[in-house]
Design a protein around this nucleic acid. Structure first.
Lengths: 144, 144
DNA sequence: CAGAATCCTGTGAGATACTG
DNA sequence: CAGTATCTCACAGGATTCTG
């Protein structure tokens, strides 16, 4: 999904071996893959994560409701992503212990803080999708 | 990366066949995978996309500068993602036609509108990474 | 330098079946 | 209902080499 804990570690014998310098502060916005906030980004910048956070924005939902709300997600990915979000303290899982089982998911306080940025991205997508599509068809026409 | 044009199309014979209803407006934030803004999201919610947009935020960069600025990206993924961004009208490529070749990339006007939301997400990551890590270790300790 | 072309592998992710 | 367990495979994506 996104957690790739056993990332093969960029082999030292690579062709672009770190490329060390960056002598001046010219490229200040460099942050290494090891940088914690980069890892957080890697986690957040994920399709299903964004969609789940978005779906939970308005309140708790049950497993099945999430599955239905997020078109195209498989139960497997839903479960996996929810587990990750739970682990990262963004989503809380509440099992009511009833039978048939009833479990719901809600954003934690931390998760709520993420909802705003995510909503901004979604808003962008909704606002500018037309421009993107236009650019795309224009580009494709140009290329044949 | 994100473009998976030949996605095997969620087979109609699937076990959760659309699940049709959603009778009431209860889950208003459902948008199907076919919905355009969903597709835009699928494109945007990508690790490399976010990082490239972020890197170009402050001004044009050349290919090598981007490669160096974005730790962990391979030349292949950089090229691919740049091509996609170009196609979507978010990034403009300028080839100076010199030898040795010199090409630089900059955000288009459209791309610039995306920089803000993306920056918000990055800001979130930087601000809350600690909480996420804490939650994670707490959770992992709880589970053994 | 900025890529294109190739080869190869890990894993993201769907399909299916089983269970309390 | 809310999962878990498997099997499977396409493809994302890294490594490497080549070129104008």
């Amino acid at each position: 999904m996104t957690q790739r804990p056993t990332r093969p570690r960029p082999r030292p014998g690579s062709r672009h071996p770190a490329r060390a310098r960056l002598t001046d502060g010219h490229l200040a916005n460099v942050y290494s893959a090891a940088c914690p906030s980069r890892q957080a980004l890697d986690r957040i910048a994920d399709k299903w994560t964004v969609l789940i956070i978005g779906a939970l924005e308005r309140g708790p939902l049950r497993f099945g409701q999430l599955r239905d709300a997020i078109d195209g997600i498989s139960e497997k990915m839903l479960t996996q992503t929810l587990r990750s979000l739970e682990r990262d303290g963004l989503v809380a899982r509440q099992d009511h212990g009833t039978t048939p089982p009833q479990v719901d998911y809600r954003l934690t306080a931390l998760g709520t803080t993420l909802a705003a940025p995510v909503a901004a991205v979604r808003a962008w997508a909704e606002r500018y999708i037309v421009e993107v599509e236009d650019a795309r068809t224009a580009h494709d026409l140009g290329q044949g």
